[in-house]
């Protein structure tokens, strides 16, 4: 049963990604990203990472994707249907990415020493994450907030019209 659910989510993730790349319409691409994000959230859920699954939906599917759509619709002069994308040149790209894929597959399947965690079963992860963020991972947590501040100021700065 679990592997069946896994394959459904995996299929969603890959199909979504496929459409993102191959659709010529940017809006379709953006929407199929939603399928990928939901599929990923499902995969996190299967790994017993409920909090990450929830934030994946909230932040990526909820916020990032909406922003992306707004970005596409508001910045393009043309109406949505005509916005296209192309990924050229195809052949070198295909060769390079298949080689990298092959290499990674060899790495993943030939490595005998993967550090495999045992399945901890169903548990509440939110309190654990909260505790870790305030103890061991305090500095990365605070630095991430500074990073977001920098990005915020930067995006406002870039968006601001320069009067000359």
């Amino acid at each position: 049963m679990e592997s069946f659910v896994f394959y459904i989510f995996a299929l969603m993730t890959i199909t979504g990604g496929w459409i993102v790349i191959y659709s010529r319409n940017l809006i379709y691409s953006a929407f199929s990203l939603l399928i990928t994000f939901v599929g990923l959230a499902g995969l996190y859920g299967l790994l017993m990472a409920d909090f990450i699954a929830a934030t994946q939906i909230l932040i990526y599917a909820g916020a990032v994707l909406i922003l992306l759509l707004f970005g596409i619709m508001l910045t393009a002069r043309k109406t949505s249907i005509e916005i296209t994308q192309s990924n050229l040149p195809r052949l070198p790209g295909a060769i390079i990415s298949s080689l990298i894929f092959l290499l990674l597959m060899v790495v993943i399947f030939s490595e005998p020493n993967w550090n495999s965690a045992t399945n901890p079963g169903v548990r509440e992860t939110v309190p654990m994450i909260g505790k870790l963020l305030m103890t061991k991972y305090l500095i990365p947590f605070e630095l991430a907030s500074i990073l977001l501040l920098a990005a915020l100021i930067g995006s406002v700065f870039i968006a601001r019209r320069e009067e000359s």
């Binding site: 990365p140 920098a150 990005a151």
Partner: peptide
Amino acid sequence: TNLLLVYIAFELVSVTSYI
């Protein structure tokens, strides 16, 4: 000395430099 912090610090330098 921790890869997570390495990554966040790395991005702080990069993102700000892009701007």
